[in-house]
Amino acid sequence: MSRLIIPLSAFFFFMAESTYADLFSGEHFNSSRIFVPHFLFIFILFLTIFGSTKYGIIYGFIFGFLFDVVYTEILGVYAFLFAFLALVVSRLMKLVHSNIFIAALISTAAIAALEILVYEANGLIKDTGMNFTEFATIRLLPTLLLNFAFIIILAFPIKRIIEKANFESD
């Protein structure tokens, strides 16, 4: 069971993201702001910080690729960015103490980096329909707010799941 719990919860967050996007959106809060859920990415970051870096990167790549295939249909963008940012975050965590508040702040910063990089990638591929200031106000800030709230709510449960899986024994 403890072997299965990590892939199962990653897959749960993978689906919860799309359900969230379907049920709640900016229009429900009467604004044109875009709230992008990054639950799966937060899980992968916490896995990297509190579990093992190796597993974080592998999960980042596999679920990023699944994300690309199922949702965006442009292969490689999220697979590469999830794995790459997991690596960067693990390097950063070596410089500071890995307590949960620092982890929450660094995860939020990583989400900001992810959003900006995806924006740039989409700008290369096609017309994104907004310039950087619009992107920052309509999309980036609401997204960071949503995901920071999500981290605050679920940081401890996620941490507990990962500690249960017990990576030190591997």
Binding site: M15, E17, S18, T19, Y20, A21, D22, S25, I34, V36, P37, H38, F67, V70, Y71, T72, E73, I74, Y78, V118, N122, T128, R139
Partner: peptide, 15 residues
């Protein structure tokens, strides 16, 4: 029936 929506809202797609 809609079963999923792309959470990355750059590509407005549903499944």
């Amino acid at each position: 029936t809609i079963i999923a929506r792309n959470p990355d809202m750059w590509h407005e797609k549903t499944i």
